[in-house]
Amino acid sequence: MTKGVKLLIGIVVLIFSVAVVFAVMGLKKSESTWVEIVQNNKVIYKLDLSEEKDRTFRIEYPDGGWNDVQIRDGHICISDADCPDHTCIKTGELRSENIPIVCLPHKLVIRFSDEGAGK
C-alpha cells in the first residue's frame, strides 16, 4: 500500500466521520426549543425556551377566562386556569412535537414550532 493510498483512505474516513457528526448535529437542531402560543389561530407568543427566564404569565381569553403559563428550567406548561375541565393543566409540560398543550374552552394551544428555529 503506497503512502498516497493510505492518505486517501484517511481522507475517506475523515469525511465520513465529519459527515456523521454533522448529521447528528442536524438531528439535534430539529428538536426545537422554540414554542408558539396560539390563541384561536393567532400566534401571540413565540419563545425560545433555551433563552427564556423562569416566569409565569397570564393569558386572557377575549370571551372571558384565563390560563397561567409557566416557564421553568426551559420547560413550559399551563400551571393554572379557570376552564372547567383543566385538561390543559393535566397535560403537564410540553414534551412531544405531536402532542400540544390544548385548552379547548379558551382555544389556546402551546406547541413546538419549527419556524424561528434559526437555520
Partner: peptide, 21 residues
C-alpha cells in the same frame, strides 16, 4: 488503485452532500 480510492472518496462525499441538500 489510487484512482479507485479517489473515486470512492468522491462518491462518498457526493452521497453525503446529496443527503444534506
Amino acid at each position: 488503485m489510487l484512482k479507485k480510492v479517489l473515486a470512492v472518496t468522491l462518491f462518498l462525499s457526493g452521497l453525503m452532500f446529496s443527503g444534506g441538500c
